[in-house]
Simulated scan of single mutants.
Amino acid sequence: MRFVLVLMLCAGCSPALMKTRGAEDPMIYDRARVERADRVAIFIPGALSSIAVFKETADWEDEGFARAFYRYPGLDGLPVDHRLDPATAAAEVAAFANTLEASEVTLVGYSTGALIALQAAPRIDPSHHVRVAAMSPAVEHAGGLRTILRGARDMGRAMVATRSVAKAKVWPRFWAGLLFGPDALEAPTPSPELQAAVVAGSKISTPLSTQTAIAHTLALPGWRLPDDLDLTGIPVSFFIGLNDPVFSTLQTTDFSRKIGGVPILGYPGQGHLLFFTRPDVFDDIKDFALGRPPRLR
């Protein structure tokens, strides 16, 4: 733990990580498509995540959406010449949205990206009809002590279940919990289906340098939404796995109440990585963006 703290302090002193804006535009999009679209969806990944988490949204273009993506330092072609600062990211997302001719703008945020979307939405000109879809949304202070303790507990459960401390054995079992929740983490003998999902799921993890990882997470423990955040008139909906081991349903429900009682669509038996385990979540989010009622499955 001391080593981690020292590492973070050193990283915080790095000139690159003192900056909150990089030299390159964090937005990536098809300019011609965006300029002529009446509907634009802006996708914001979670900390430590690539925009690849949104790869299942290509069919949104069939519904008239142009897609744009916000990138983080060290991923998707951006250098690590700055750190993720949520307030700066929200300002950049809003500034981009305010250049659009589109009448409808939907912000789709995953995990940390959901908080950025919430903070950006009120800064977008009301001439745009803005919606916010939050998938597996982070909560303030990155979940704080409760999330830290739950992560440590789950790692301990993975060690007990595998009777090992070897990363090669423990990490796949920990992934099972991340994908599907504690039941999967503690299964005495994982089913072939679960084993296949864990193997496939582990491949979506993007290797990160230490500097990139710290650039993404440095600001999160102290981050909270501004007290004057006003989402009046902006439709917001949460899409969560009901077994999410990162941000619990209780934490998410409490957070929903804090920002005005956001509707929550929950997926039984699912963890934090809905984009992988339930890619149909993007159909539900698209329905929300189009003002359609939720589908019954």
Rank of each mutant, 00 (worst) to 15 (best):
residue 3 F to R: 00
residue 5 L to S: 14
residue 6 V to G: 05
residue 8 M to T: 11
residue 9 L to G: 15
residue 10 C to F: 09
residue 12 G to E: 00
residue 12 G to C: 07
residue 16 A to Y: 07
residue 18 M to W: 05
residue 18 M to F: 00
residue 21 R to C: 12
residue 25 D to I: 02
residue 33 R to L: 13
residue 39 R to I: 00
residue 41 A to F: 08
residue 41 A to I: 06
residue 47 A to W: 06
residue 49 S to V: 07
residue 49 S to N: 15
residue 50 S to T: 13
residue 51 I to V: 15
residue 52 A to I: 04
residue 54 F to W: 13
residue 56 E to T: 05
residue 56 E to G: 02
residue 56 E to S: 14
residue 57 T to A: 12
residue 60 W to C: 05
residue 60 W to P: 05
residue 64 G to C: 05
residue 66 A to I: 09
residue 67 R to G: 03
residue 70 Y to E: 12
residue 71 R to V: 11
residue 72 Y to A: 08
residue 73 P to L: 06
residue 76 D to H: 08
residue 77 G to Q: 05
residue 79 P to V: 07
residue 82 H to F: 15
residue 86 P to Q: 08
residue 89 A to M: 13
residue 89 A to V: 09
residue 92 E to S: 11
residue 93 V to D: 01
residue 96 F to H: 07
residue 97 A to E: 09
residue 98 N to A: 08
residue 101 E to F: 10
residue 104 E to L: 10
residue 105 V to C: 03
residue 105 V to T: 06
residue 108 V to D: 01
residue 110 Y to R: 08
residue 110 Y to G: 04
residue 119 Q to V: 06
residue 124 I to D: 01
residue 126 P to R: 15
residue 128 H to M: 04
residue 128 H to L: 03
residue 129 H to I: 00
residue 130 V to D: 09
residue 132 V to N: 08
residue 132 V to E: 02
residue 133 A to I: 02
residue 139 V to Y: 02
residue 139 V to P: 03
residue 143 G to V: 04
residue 143 G to E: 07
residue 144 G to Q: 12
residue 145 L to E: 14
residue 147 T to Q: 14
residue 151 G to R: 13
residue 152 A to H: 09
residue 154 D to Y: 15
residue 155 M to W: 14
residue 155 M to D: 06
residue 162 T to Y: 02
residue 163 R to D: 14
residue 165 V to N: 01
residue 165 V to F: 11
residue 166 A to H: 13
residue 167 K to N: 00
residue 168 A to I: 09
residue 168 A to T: 11
residue 169 K to Y: 03
residue 172 P to S: 12
residue 175 W to E: 14
residue 176 A to V: 07
residue 176 A to H: 05
residue 178 L to S: 12
residue 179 L to D: 04
residue 180 F to E: 07
residue 181 G to E: 11
residue 182 P to Q: 06
residue 183 D to C: 02
residue 185 L to P: 06
residue 187 A to W: 00
residue 188 P to V: 12
residue 189 T to D: 15
residue 192 P to Y: 12
residue 196 A to G: 09
residue 197 A to W: 13
residue 202 S to K: 11
residue 205 S to L: 15
residue 210 T to H: 00
residue 210 T to L: 15
residue 211 Q to C: 10
residue 212 T to V: 11
residue 215 A to T: 13
residue 215 A to L: 13
residue 216 H to I: 03
residue 223 W to D: 12
residue 226 P to T: 04
residue 227 D to H: 10
residue 229 L to K: 05
residue 229 L to T: 01
residue 233 G to A: 08
residue 234 I to M: 06
residue 235 P to D: 03
residue 238 F to K: 09
residue 244 D to Q: 02
residue 245 P to Y: 01
residue 246 V to K: 01
residue 249 T to I: 02
residue 250 L to I: 14
residue 250 L to A: 15
residue 260 G to E: 07
residue 262 V to C: 05
residue 263 P to W: 12
residue 273 L to R: 12
residue 276 F to I: 11
residue 276 F to Q: 10
residue 276 F to W: 09
residue 285 I to T: 10
residue 291 G to H: 07
residue 293 P to E: 05
residue 294 P to Y: 01
